[in-house]
């Protein structure tokens, strides 16, 4: 047999209520083993309290070439940031 185990992406949620964050990947025959391996490889020093694993093959990513089309429009909409609106100094709590 000797087929390579599939690749899994590993996401860990730290203790402080943050979202799961991608930390790396590993090979495992199934999800259960992927979680066990992720626990051994990525949480040896209290890095987290929750693990997600997803088959790498199931992840769809934006293409590097689409970067401008996807993300540049955000640059000309500065009014989305609160600092766009100058507030008089006398006005408080806003």
């Amino acid at each position: 047999m000797n087929a390579e185990w599939p690749l899994w992406e590993v996401f860990i949620r730290s203790q402080h209520g943050l979202a799961h964050k991608h930390v790396g990947s590993l090979h495992a025959p199934d999800a259960e083993m992927a979680i066990k391996n992720a626990r051994d490889v990525y949480t040896r020093r209290n890095e987290g309290i929750s693990i997600w694993v997803a088959r790498s093959a199931d992840i769809h990513a934006s293409a590097p070439g689409d970067r401008a089309a996807l993300f540049d429009p955000a640059n000309d909409k500065v009014y989305r940031h609160p600092t766009f609106f100058p507030m008089p100094e006398e006005v408080k709590h806003i």
């Binding site: 000797n2 185990w5 199934d30």
Partner: peptide, 16 residues
């Protein structure tokens, strides 16, 4: 370790 890797694969396939 080959038999362990193969056994884990077989187990995963059967469960799936």
């Amino acid at each position: 370790g080959a038999w362990v890797r193969d056994a884990a694969s077989a187990h995963a396939e059967r469960r799936a």
